[in-house]
């Protein structure tokens, strides 16, 4: 005999909504969202059309570039970012191995997806972060939204995205962005808020307008944090490519998905490791670049 048996019903069982009511409740919301989708689907699709075109163009560009040129360009970017010859060689070797194992095109697709979504995240995230840093009220509104975006299971927001936009590149991109944007927003906000109060006061004393203060003092001093945010955003975007492939974002992610569905061990491992290779390159390059931005703090007076 358990404690439950001794209690009246309303304490033993949670008083829940009637089954019929609950069904109607869910159906009602679903139905109204479906109506909303039918009425506004086209508008929303049109809204994202430029993004889709950009995405398609960029993917074609990467796929259309001959592999030696592509490797050269990527190595050049690594050199500009990191200024390290070992990293350039490492990048070249990794890319060649990927190509040799037959994953070149899928890697390019993934690269395109990650690049474009990182770009979108930065373009939206930094202004939002700046806004947040300027007002405690805006921060109080946005922080919980970011919390939700980071904790809600990705599959859950795939549903409305799918309903609105169907299967394709843009929904994949949006799903990646929802997951990947919080760090850049958070760290932009944090970086700006952490700027030394004394330095800000000096800027005020010399008559800096709010805009001058932001551009000449706050953003430059927030850069290290801001860059840590961009780095995290790239990493999270890469982590999302498998999930995004569920709704039609092709690339290494969709291969992993196929491998999971069919228990192809080697296929899964290869594509997974290709993602890891790209992640390592992106991570090291962006970290080194972030560090180089802080060259003023390197040499310290003894």
């Amino acid at each position: 005999m358990s404690l439950k048996d001794m209690l009246p019903d309303y304490l033993a069982e949670f008083p829940k909504m009637g089954r019929a009511d609950l069904r109607d409740f869910k159906k009602g919301i679903d139905e109204s969202f479906r109506v909303f989708t039918r009425e506004n689907g086209e508008t929303i699709e049109n809204f994202f059309y430029p993004l889709k075109m950009f995405m398609v163009w960029f993917e074609k560009l990467l796929l259309g570039t001959p592999w030696p040129l592509m490797i050269a360009v990527l190595c050049l970017l690594v050199w500009f970012g990191a200024r390290s010859i070992t990293m350039v060689i490492g990048t070249a070797l990794a890319l060649m191995l990927i190509g040799y194992l037959g994953m070149w095109d899928d890697t390019m697709r993934t690269l395109a997806l990650v690049s474009v979504s990182t770009f979108v995240c930065i373009a939206i995230g930094i202004p939002v972060g700046i806004l947040m840093s300027k007002s405690d009220r805006i921060q109080a509104v946005i922080v919980p939204i970011l919390d939700i975006m980071q904790t809600i299971p990705a599959f859950v927001y795939l549903i409305p995205v799918l309903m609105l936009l169907g299967i394709g590149k843009v929904p994949g991109l949006i799903a990646v962005c929802i997951y990947a944007i919080p760090p850049v927003v958070r760290l932009t906000n944090l970086g700006i808020r952490l700027v030394d109060k004394d330095v800000l006061e000096a800027a005020d004393a010399f008559g800096a307008s709010p805009r001058q203060k932001m551009l000449k003092v706050q953003l430059p001093l927030a850069l290290p944090n801001l860059f840590a945010g961009v780095n995290q955003t790239i990493m999270m975007a890469l982590a999302m490519v498998v999930v995004a492939s569920l709704i039609g974002a092709h690339g290494l992610g969709s291969n992993v998905l196929k491998a999971v569905n069919n228990q192809y061990l080697t296929l899964g491992m290869m594509n997974g490791l290709a993602i890891v290779a790209i992640a390592i390159v992106f991570d090291r390059v962006s970290q080194k670049f972030g560090k180089r931005l802080q060259k003023h703090s390197e040499k310290v007076h003894g």
């Binding site: 330095v199 010399f206 003092v217």
Partner: peptide, 20 residues
């Protein structure tokens, strides 16, 4: 803003230089 820019200048205890 104009007054601060053209009429005053300030020196601070903790220097408050821009580190970057």
């Amino acid at each position: 803003l104009k007054f601060r820019r053209h009429k005053t200048a300030m020196v601070f205890q903790k220097f408050a230089l821009l580190p970057h």
